[in-house]
């Protein structure tokens, strides 16, 4: 009645694969970007599990850096998305109505 560390690794692998599939099948750029975030999170789960296995905090420090990188990436990525949609709205009249909703 206890949990071997491998279970956490399996869960992380599952989340990573789901995220990767999501990037491939979704068309919405924002959702694709969310899927990448899911992948980074599953890597963090792996790192934290390995930190526990190895009895060292290094894995947690690595996960901490990954969070910083993900935050920076999201900032730039969403800025690009906003600009992209703004541009599309101003160049493509058909889309303006949809975007106003």
């Amino acid at each position: 009645m206890s949990v071997p560390a491998g279970y956490y690794l399996i869960l992380a692998a599952a989340l990573f694969s789901i995220g990767a599939v999501g990037v491939l099948i979704r068309r919405s750029v924002i959702v694709m970007f969310m899927c990448v975030e899911l992948m980074l999170n599953s890597v963090n789960l792996t790192l934290v599990t390995f930190a526990r296995i190895n009895a060292s905090l290094d894995g947690q420090v690595l996960a901490f850096f990954v969070i910083v990188v993900a935050a920076a990436e999201v900032t730039v990525g969403l800025a690009l998305i906003v600009n992209l949609f703004r541009l599309r709205a101003s160049t493509d009249a058909d889309q303006v109505g949809a975007l106003r909703a």
Binding site: S2, P4, A5, G6, I10, A13, F16, S17, V21
Partner: peptide, 22 residues
């Protein structure tokens, strides 16, 4: 995706499923 999951899960979790891995 399924292939990725199976290979990742087998590779990463394989050694960590025994009693000592609790």
């Amino acid at each position: 995706g399924v292939l990725l999951f199976v290979s990742l899960a087998a590779a990463t979790a394989g050694p960590f499923l025994g009693d000592a891995s609790v």
